[in-house]
Design a binder for these strands. Sequence first.
RNA 1: GCCGAUUUAGUUUAGUGGUAAAACAGAUGCAUGGUAAGCAUCAGAGAUCAGUUCAAUUCUGUUAAUCGGCACCA
Length: 580
Amino acid sequence: MINIKEDKDLNILNHSCAHLLAQAVKHLYPHAKFWVGPVIENGFYYDIDLGDDVIKEEDLQKIEKEMKKISKDGKRIYREELTREEALEKFKNDEYKIDLINNMDDDAVISCYTQGDFTDLCRGPHVESVKVIKHFHLLKVSGAYFKGDSKNKMLQRIYGICFDSEEKLEDYMNFLEEAKKRDHRKLGKDLNLFMISEYGPGFPFWLPNGMILRKQLENFWYEQHTKEGYEFIQTPIMLSRELWEISGHWFNYRENMYTSEIDEKTFAIKPMNCPGGMLVYKNSLHSYKDLPIRCGELGLVHRHEASGALSGLFRVRNFTQDDAHIFMREDQMESEIIRLVNFIDRMYKVFNLSYHVELSTRPLDKYIGEIETWDRAESILKDALTKAGKDFKLNPGDGAFYGPKLDFKVRDSLGREWQCGTIQLDMQLPERFDLTYIDQDGSKKRPVMIHRVIYGSIERFIGVLIEHFAGSFPLWMAPVQVNVIPINNEYHLEYAKKIVKVLEENGLRTILDDRDEKLGYKIREAQVKKYPYNLIIGQKEVDENKISYRRHGSEETTTLELSEFIEKLQKEIENKEIVK
RNA sequence: GCCGAUUUAGUUUAGUGGUAAAACAGAUGCAUGGUAAGCAUCAGAGAUCAGUUCAAUUCUGUUAAUCGGCACCA
């Protein structure tokens, strides 16, 4: 997929297209005022103040038409440089542009671009003429807070994208269509993986097929973490308010927490697993020799997410974090983080997921602890990443309130990024809970702690996997692994049943399609349901005592001895193969 | 939570100010031997609460959920 922001030519073209959009909007809505119109990965947008007017989806066509008209007219685009005073004078009736000018550095070059009857304050560069802006499409319209702050008023934002050929534009539109087909919400319904009831917005229900995915992921997780030296716990869903006051959640995370009164005391349902983990650590004394302690928990958390934020399995109100807390000595931090980064990399490779890492640093306002502690924690994370040989993007101010973090972001089918894994250094909780270990010299020392998840949430991770595999899961995860279809129930059912029995005895999730239907009908359904292996059992197979299979997505038929077939599948499962 | 849109059967869609149409899925019967939809019958629907109207699924508003964004975030 093309990243418009990073493609130099397309970047300029899209930026010019944003100006073209603004010009067209100005023609149709003369009172419109413009904030900013930047280029983004998927095109561009422009934020517009239309007063009481509202642009609706159907108005986009009208605006597009006006844009085409202006483009055809083919005016040149002129650059002009201004002094600050000239600029303030020129845009004196436009509070948005004045705001921009006033926020520019003293030595900034102030320039504006003019095309026909439209002038916009802009750094540029731009294409030389509006006539080269031809292959574009306005995609959506939405509200967007002025300066990205929900306390400010809402402007109207129009999104669009522009290419240098009609063909590329069409390709992109086709890509959007294709992406819709792998939307996990649609596939979740089609494949009976999960459901969300209107009685519980954001609270997913897992259906039998989805449960198998979950179970496989959980088993794999336990297996890998055991190998990595983790031990496992389970802490309560609900704990009393005092605990959340100690942890800081009560003051920093209260609006996202569900609470309840029990025996006249306030309890909160856990939005995070850490405080419970702290209590477990404190349950016994620890020697320096025992560190690092890696303590895992598949913990079900509840968070009151804003209604507008909910989205399928990607953003829900209860989810299971594949959490772990690692308690260690300061001298163990770096090696432990490097080890973790590599562990996460290994886990994602199994799913063939690509990702990138971001380092999120101290939030500007909502944080606990000392700035020096934060700085130290941030530099430890940075150094560990560098030593692990990972590139990363800096995400200033995006850390959790208790510490900086490394975020592992995975893309969905539409190119949107979702945070899955995260490594968060917490230099606050050990302090707040007065965690200690006994050092070599018998003195009490404070351990440092990491919170980390790899899947992030099992819910979100499954959502990503559904889209990533378009519902055709690797054999080891697939809810149904083998579908057995006898051609004629009268003659082949008995043999088919025998095969099903052997497959099941060998641990393969098998179903028998013995419905009284024509073969073509059953084959079609097998394809639609994306069963990985479909066995067709007819006279030939009965006579030769063999099986014939067709792999999902292929039209080839292969005939094998049953034992060979089982061996092949077991190998595919064992290796967690991804068949493309 | 904010801006905008949407809501018809289990699913996907049509249509209408006066009896709501279909495909797939479901039930029943018939048909069915080689790789993507056999036939017939049956059953099943306008989210919510109001308003306008002789009459509302259709118009207006409400609430809810969902979708696209924003803000927030795993």
